[in-house]
Design a protein around this nucleic acid. Structure first.
Length: 213
DNA sequence: CAATAGATCATCT
DNA sequence: GATGATCTATTGC
C-alpha cells in the first residue's frame, strides 16, 4: 500500500461509521442538475466496504444539452434519466469503463450529474486490489472510469435507488472547500459551458490544471 | 513535460 | 458501421 500523499489525508472511516451515515433523501436530487452538482460535492459515496468523498462532478442538462446522452431523446439506455430522481444512471464508455451518474430533476426532466472523482475514505485496500498499480492513493479514484472500477460499480447497479442502496450517497460533515468551475471534459459539443465543478486544490481531482480537448 | 495509440463494445445511425 | 462524458503505456521533445 502506498503512503498517504496529501497533508489533508484522513484516517479511513470504519465500517461501523459507514453504516451510520445517513443517505441523502430523494428530495435532494429533485432540483436543477447544476444545483445538485454543486451541492453534492463533499458527500460520501458508499458501496460495501468502500467509500469516497465526492470531489469532482459535471452537470448534464437534458435534451437541450447537446453533450448529454438525453440529447438523443428517450432510449432504452437513457430510460432511468426520465424517471424519479435519486437513482443511478450507469453506462459503458469506450467499450471498457463504466461511468456513474446521479439522476437529478423531477420526473420526465432527464438531467443528471456525472461523478468524476472521489477522495477515498474507506476500503482503500480493496480499491487497490481492483485497480492494480497506482502510484498514490489520490489516484485511486481520480477519474470517472477509475472510481467505478475502484468501487466495484457496474451496470448491474443501473437504476439503483441511492437513498436505499446498495449504492448510496450519504451526508457527511459539511466540506470546507471552495468550489471551482470549468468546462466539461472529453466532450465535443457545448465545450464552453461551465458545468464542471470540483473542490479547489483537492489532490484527487482528475484534471486540476484545466486542460481542454 | 506533451502527444498519441491501442484496448474494446453497447448504443445509435 | 461509426462513435464515445476513458485510461494506460509509450514515444518524442
Amino acid at each position: 500500500m502506498p503512503d498517504r500523499d496529501s497533508p489533508s489525508w484522513r484516517d479511513e472511516i470504519s465500517g461501523r461509521q459507514l453504516a451510520r451515515l445517513k443517505p441523502l433523501p430523494r428530495k435532494f436530487y429533485e432540483r436543477p442538475s447544476i444545483d445538485v452538482a454543486r451541492s453534492v460535492l463533499g458527500k460520501i459515496l458508499v458501496l460495501g466496504e468502500c467509500a469516497g468523498r465526492i470531489v469532482e462532478v459535471e452537470a448534464y442538462l437534458g435534451e437541450t444539452d447537446r453533450a448529454a446522452h438525453a440529447w438523443h431523446g428517450r432510449t432504452p439506455r437513457t430510460e432511468v434519466l426520465y424517471g424519479a430522481p435519486g437513482r443511478a444512471y450507469i453506462y459503458l464508455i469506450y467499450g471498457m469503463y463504466e461511468c456513474l451518474n446521479l439522476v437529478a430533476e423531477p420526473e420526465n426532466s432527464p438531467g443528471c450529474v456525472l461523478v468524476r472523482a472521489l477522495e477515498p475514505v474507506a476500503g482503500l485496500a480493496r480499491m487497490l486490489e481492483r485497480r492494480g498499480t497506482v502510484a498514490r492513493p489520490s489516484q485511486l479514484c481520480s477519474g470517472p472510469g477509475k472510481l467505478t472500477r475502484a468501487m466495484g460499480i457496474t451496470r448491474e447497479l443501473y437504476g439503483c435507488d441511492l437513498a436505499r442502496g446498495p449504492l448510496r450517497v450519504c451526508e457527511p460533515e459539511s466540506h470546507s472547500g471552495e468550489i471551482e468551475t470549468s468546462p466539461r471534459i472529453g466532450i465535443r459539443h457545448c465545450v464552453d459551458w461551465p458545468l464542471r465543478f470540483f473542490l479547489r486544490g483537492n489532490p484527487c481531482v482528475s484534471r486540476p490544471l484545466l486542460a481542454r480537448r
